[in-house]
Design a protein around this nucleic acid. Structure first.
Lengths: 202, 202
DNA sequence: CTAAGCATGTAAGGTGTTACATGATTCT
DNA sequence: AGAATCATGTAACACCTTACATGCTTAG
């Protein structure tokens, strides 16, 4: 009786279940999957993947086939029928969220307290990151993703589209951001000026 | 000695510090701020805001002015010079991340295991959410945001731009996604049919 | 032979959420 | 009068990350 599985939220467990619906895989391969196609909207580390697989195994939602060739341990997981049922049930019941935690945008909000150099560096760094991810996405198109369901292609195209939009916006508007931030700099305390004295009590 | 404040990451504490750099506020107002301008890239709940303010207060980075008019407690916080220094230091040192956790996109990846109705509902729900946030953003333009720094306007415009791009993509491509998902539905096990045979070796 | 990649896992900890608990004031 | 909004806070817990720990294999 594989109990506890009425999760409304798509945690790492459910994600693993879902990825395994594309075909069997090891924990390591699952990680690569997260990094390749899913990285722009769902990250997961080994520290969450391996325990998830173990829990799923314990619940009978995945089956594990161990092979140890010459001391090299390898555990290939695949979805069980119970696992597919559970996955379908979760998908049918879920009310998925969509949240972004962008420290980058957060920092930008406080650009008026930053040096123009740092601000520039930040922006260029983010642009580079975006380019990197976009390039990686481009690679995926021909590669292994061919036999994945259309939905995954949809999600990837979505990522490409929105990241391109983000990139374009930043590129086109960074100029005025930087000059505006410079203009709005309040009288700089930490430069070598009459020091404002109060660092307060010890 | 206001110690422990070499955080490289922009946690809620630093965010509160940053928002207070726009002007004094209560915890409740801070929450509204998160909800209004920041919601699309940084969420924070009371359960993290209030403790953050207390910690900042203990470290001397913010000052608190309590007013209790007729049993109605109100704590107005404002940045201290030490707080501004700390904020500047954190901003100068940080390497901001940008991560998205979209259960929505995750679920879409497994569209082949969902009913077309659920899929449609999901997509329409997300579109409605986007419209809602976009409308809210539009309101902000004239309203209170006038005196906020240009950087905040940049971030808001960024949000508007990218969310619009997301919305457009979904609107334009949901058609083929839904039909493709329907086509790719594997023979449905949980209906009363002959079980799927090809589980391969077992 | 050394570095990178493949491969599995554990333990401690950080960070934030949910739910709870309370109460005044203003709008309908 | 009741609902919504203003207002503050706590405690338990979920969830994931980081760093650690280990060892084989392949490519340079």
């Amino acid at each position: 009786m594989p109990a506890r599985n009425q999760s409304k939220s798509l945690d790492v467990r459910t994600m693993c279940l879902g990825i395994l619906s594309f075909g069997e895989a090891t924990g390591y391969e699952l990680k690569r999957h997260f990094e390749n196609g899913f990285h722009h909207f769902y990250a997961a580390s080994f520290g969450s993947i391996y325990p998830a697989l173990e829990a799923l195994s314990a619940d009978g939602l995945v089956a594990c086939q161990e092979t140890a060739e010459g001391g090299k341990l390898r555990k290939v997981y695949r979805l069980t029928p119970a696992g597919e049922s559970a996955l379908r049930a979760t998908l049918a019941a879920c009310e998925p969220t969509h949240r972004m935690r962008s420290e980058f945008l957060a920092v930008l909000c406080f650009a008026h307290l930053m040096s123009p150099e740092k601000l520039s560096a930040l922006i260029d760094g983010r642009l580079a990151e975006l380019d990197d991810t976009l390039a990686r996405h481009h690679d995926l198109r021909d590669d292994a993703h061919a036999q994945l369901p259309a939905s995954v292609r949809f999600v990837n195209e979505f990522g490409r589209h929105t990241m391109q939009a983000a990139r374009d916006f930043i590129e086109q508007n960074k100029g005025w951001l930087i000059s505006a931030a410079e203009r709005e700099q309040p009288p700089d305390d930490n430069a070598s000026r009459a020091p404002r004295a109060r660092r307060g009590a010890a």
